[in-house]
């Protein structure tokens, strides 16, 4: 009985989904069959280059046109990190009792000392140039967090200050919301651009996009480093 119900539901969903796809037709980008109406895609692409002076269309949509949505994503990440921290909280302060079976060799330890600044530099490059090239705050933050992961795996006693992480995270979040609220002061809406947009393909261009992406980069890096640190410091079962 249950299986028949599931099959029925799938059939109904599939019927309407297929109908929608046949309505659009292969290669068409919009529902409207009248060519006089401009699809949303063209408006986004036009505004990205002409008004915002940003060469990365994805960034302009994520941070500017749908900035409120990005704020929600950052909040989701923050909530999941908080939940993980609260679950693993009691086992957090056992430094040196990681779930690592043996320490890394001297090649890895000295090599990671050399590579760590390069990885952090790459991450910073990715989120500072978010409005010019592929990448952005989330990607750059993850790259920086992998640098911390390398250090934590290489050195048994490498520790990250939890207070420092939460300060960086809070400051970045406040920057994001503060920039959004500053949009009100110039008579606009939340997260509206109020800075001069500059010239296309310039580092100092795009209005508030670089500021928000730098804040997001710091926030994601701090949050993911906190996750890695918490998980690594959980006492593994194989250690007893």
């Amino acid at each position: 009985m249950k299986k028949i119900l599931v099959l029925l539901l799938l059939a109904v969903v599939g019927f309407y989904l297929a109908g929608t796809f046949f309505d659009i037709g292969f290669g068409n980008s919009h529902f409207v069959k009248n060519d006089a109406i401009k699809p949303v895609k063209d408006i986004y692409l036009q505004q990205t280059v002409q008004e915002l002076k940003v060469s990365n269309a994805v960034t302009s949509i994520v941070v500017n046109f749908r900035g409120f949505d990005t704020l929600g994503e950052v909040t989701v990440l923050f909530l999941s990190v908080t939940a993980l921290g609260s679950i693993l909280y009691k086992k957090r302060h056992h430094v040196g009792e990681r779930s690592v079976l043996f320490s890394a060799s001297s090649i890895v330890t000295s090599g990671s000392k050399l590579l760590f600044p390069a990885i952090v530099l790459l991450g910073a490059y990715v989120f500072i140039h978010g409005h010019l090239s592929p990448g952005g705050g989330f990607q750059g933050g993850v790259i920086i967090a992998t640098g911390f992961l390398l250090m934590l795996l290489a050195y048994e006693n490498y520790s990250v200050s939890h207070n420092g992480l939460s300060i960086v995270e809070s400051l970045a979040g406040i920057t994001f919301v503060g920039v959004g609220l500053l949009g009100f002061m110039n008579g606009g809406t939340f997260l509206q651009n109020f800075l001069p947009t500059g010239e296309l393909n310039n580092l100092f261009s795009g209005g508030i996009i670089p500021i928000i992406y730098i804040a997001v980069g710091f926030k994601v890096a701090a949050e993911l480093t906190g996750v890695i640190y918490t998980v690594l410091n959980e006492k593994g079962e194989q250690n007893g």
Partner: peptide, 13 residues
């Protein structure tokens, strides 16, 4: 330079 450092170290590990 980055590849010359990272690739041998990772395969050693």
């Amino acid at each position: 330079i980055f590849i010359a450092f990272s690739n041998p170290i990772s395969s050693h590990a």
